[in-house]
């Protein structure tokens, strides 16, 4: 009986420990795998002008609809443009735009959310109502309206996303700030005679970063889909500029006899999305762990 009990409890404990360390290993693995995928694709995109075998808009009407070969790794499209080169340039543009439309709203949103949460009162009411209003606007409709006003192009995407994207970050930051402003180290900073802005930006905001950063990685994926989607619809980036959504749309009419024009860039897109998602997951777990350690 005694033996059974001790044996049993040990195995339960062991299993818990094993599961915990397996979880940790998995989250580290997913972070590194994500970083590898994203790092590899981004590196190729950054180096596009040097490593792309052909130009972004280099038309070669003598070799249209070439299937993938050593000469054209991902084949060529209806105008004989090298799909691989176009994908490199496309990802380059996509990443640039996506970083801007993710992190500019993050900064704006975190600033507004931090102020709202810290000061409370009428400032909070005003910012909160603004958040509610903005969150009620369906994004795609807003972009279409902007595009209808100023004409198709990247400007519409920028204005649309900047106008709406900050709201979620503001809400996140505000929620965290409501907790943080009650922390004793904020009280201690007040007691030390620090100015309000110093307390707000040097002591409170760095502690807000975690959740916003984790969310931003997921947001990157959403914004990527959004940018490609809008461009696919012909509202964003305009052909002949290479952009993943544009490339995919270009190849669509020929899907049945030149599948590579749409499918292969699509796969690159999927990999990039998976890469960012893995980073997001891993980051959330690992930062969560650090958080547990600090409490």
């Amino acid at each position: 009986m005694k033996y059974l009990l001790s044996h049993n409890s040990r195995s339960v404990g062991d299993r818990l420990i094993r599961r915990a360390s397996a979880d940790r290993r998995w989250s580290r693995f997913s972070l590194y795998l994500g970083l590898t995928i994203v790092g590899f694709i981004s590196l190729a995109a950054i180096l596009a002008p040097w490593i792309a075998p052909y130009g972004e808009r280099e038309i070669d009407l003598l070799s249209t609809f070439q299937p993938p070969s050593f000469k054209h790794i991902l084949g060529t499209d209806d105008m004989g443009r090298d799909v691989f080169s176009r994908v490199l340039y496309g990802v380059r543009l996509d990443l640039q735009v996506v970083l801007v439309i993710t992190y500019a709203p993050l900064l704006i949103g975190m600033f507004l959310g931090a102020i709202a949460g810290y000061f409370g009162g009428w400032i909070d009411t005003v910012i909160n109502r603004a958040i509610d209003t903005v969150m009620a606007i369906p994004f795609l409709v807003l972009v279409i309206v902007v595009v209808a006003i100023i004409g198709p192009g990247l400007e519409g995407v920028f204005i649309g996303v900047m106008g709406v994207g900050w709201a979620l970050y503001a809400r996140l930051a505000r929620a965290d700030m409501l907790v943080i402003r009650e922390e004793q180290y904020i009280l201690a900073a007040k007691g030390l005679g620090y100015s309000t802005w110093r307390i707000l930006f040097k002591h409170a905001v760095p502690n807000l970063l975690r959740s916003s950063l984790v969310f931003s990685v997921a947001d990157i994926v959403l914004n990527m889909v959004l940018l490609a989607g809008v461009s696919y619809l012909g509202l964003g980036v305009q052909p002949p500029t290479a952009e993943l959504g544009v490339i995919i749309a270009d190849g669509q009419p020929f899907l049945l006899y030149a599948w590579w024009i749409t499918t292969l860039p699509g796969l690159v897109f999927v990999f990039l999305g998976i890469g960012f998602s893995l980073i997001g997951d891993g980051l959330a777990d690992m930062l969560g762990e650090e958080f547990k350690l600090t409490v």
């Binding site: 922390e183 004793q184 180290y185 009280l187 201690a188 900073a189 002591h203 760095p206 502690n207 600090t294």
Partner: peptide
């Protein structure tokens, strides 16, 4: 303060 676990900023 009473609680030394929360009176210091964890990030500094």
């Amino acid at each position: 303060f009473q609680d030394p676990y929360t009176s210091l900023n964890p990030r500094m």
